[in-house]
């Protein structure tokens, strides 16, 4: 009897590895597991026959059986891991994708070049301690001209080709020709000290061509405080220039004329393409004209009720469309305003 059991155990131990290995799928493995270890399995059946053995033999048989059971279980577990791995590998292989054959594309939109440029400029000035002010695009003659020391019939009005709006008396309401009326609003609505920049859209009666649009954008700066001088203007523009264009780009001021500033100046920067060495873009001069600036004219201060002896200030302004174009080498300003997505999407940031 003992011998029978021993033989059977030995047979099972000898056959089991082959049977387990022969299971080609997880299902077959489960079947083999049932045959060997299950409730109706061979080892379980043997166990039932052990009751007839004497204690000594029963212990020895039990030990042998447990060893076989453990080794069979280990073999099945190992086989299961293998089969599961193989099955997963098959699934993964079947799921292979060519990642370059994507049909659907997800796209971020884009900010307009003018917005990108405006935000960058504004950020630099905010970093320098300026607040940001805005004003209406349709203005009265007072804000756009009169208050800025440009009385009616002043020859300097010829400097701006104004688009007038058909409201009120003739030539009293207009599309602002510059962002300067916001200066007046800032000074009228608030008190010095004022450190503000004023970005915005402006209008001129100008036929559209590669470098002109009847609608374009400017940023204007205004500082009014005690003891503000032309040196402060020069220094502020120099600080802005290197912050925005890079440390190798410097600024210079040349005498000019604007009715609302005196002394007035043109604001030039080193050509950003040749860094001042001279190239086609800067006409070999090494300089690019950026905008105008000057000390706020005493008449302007008086027009907003400020004492021009107590308060002094400076103002500057320049167009930003050209900066946007230059940054990306766009040679026709009209491209920016057609809404052509093929243009817009080229500048995601």
């Amino acid at each position: 009897m003992t011998d029978d059991i021993t033989r059977t155990v030995q047979r099972i131990a000898a056959e089991a590895p082959g049977r387990v290995a022969a299971a080609a799928t997880l299902e077959e493995l489960r079947a083999v597991e049932g045959e060997l270890l299950g409730k109706k399995g061979e080892l379980t059946a043997l166990k039932k026959g052990m009751g007839a053995l004497d204690p000594e033999a029963r212990r020895a048989a039990g030990q042998a059986m447990n060893e076989v059971r453990a080794s069979v279980e280990a073999a099945i577990a190992a086989r299961r891991t293998d089969l599961e791995g193989a099955a997963r590998a098959l699934t993964l292989a079947a799921e292979r994708l060519d990642l370059t054959e994507a049909v659907e594309h997800r796209q971020r939109g884009s900010l307009h070049l003018v917005t990108q440029t405006m935000d960058r400029l504004v950020d630099v000035f905010v970093g320098m301690g300026f607040t940001v002010a805005e004003g209406p695009e349709v203005e009265t003659d007072w804000y756009n001209f009169e208050a800025l020391n440009i009385p009616a019939a002043h020859p300097a009005r010829g400097m701006w080709d104004t688009l007038y709006v058909d409201l009120g008396d003739p030539e009293t309401v207009l599309l602002r020709t510059h962002t300067s009326p916001v200066q007046i609003r800032v000074m009228t609505d608030g008190e010095p000290p004022i450190y503000a920049v004023m970005p915005g859209r402006v209008y001129r009666r100008d036929t559209a061509d590669a470098s002109h649009m009847p609608v374009f954008h400017q940023i204007e700066g205004l500082v009014v405080d005690r003891g503000i001088s032309f040196a402060d203007l020069a220094g502020t523009l120099e600080a802005f220039t290197s912050a925005y264009f890079g440390g190798s780009i410097h600024s210079r001021l040349r005498p000019s004329y604007f009715p609302f500033t005196e002394p007035s100046a043109e604001y030039d920067i080193n050509c950003i393409f040749c860094e001042g060495r001279g190239c086609r873009t800067c006409g070999q001069t090494g300089w690019l004209e950026l905008g105008g600036c000057g000390m706020v004219h005493p008449n302007v201060l008086r027009n907003v009720g400020l004492d021009a002896e107590e308060w002094t200030g400076f103002a500057f302004g320049f167009g930003l469309d050209r900066l946007a174009l230059m940054r990306h080498g766009v040679d026709d300003i009209r491209e920016m305003f057609t809404g052509d997505v093929r243009f817009l999407e080229q500048f995601p940031a």
């Binding site: 300026f130 607040t131 450190y195 503000i228 220094g235 502020t236 005196e262």
Partner: peptide
């Protein structure tokens, strides 16, 4: 302005005023 022109704009020093306010949107 005439004095500034003939003194030379390029000879005017560059100074940054100290704003008492903080910049912000």
């Amino acid at each position: 302005e005439e004095i500034a022109r003939h003194h030379g704009y390029s000879r005017i020093p560059k100074r940054v005023p100290t704003s008492v306010q903080t910049g912000s949107l």
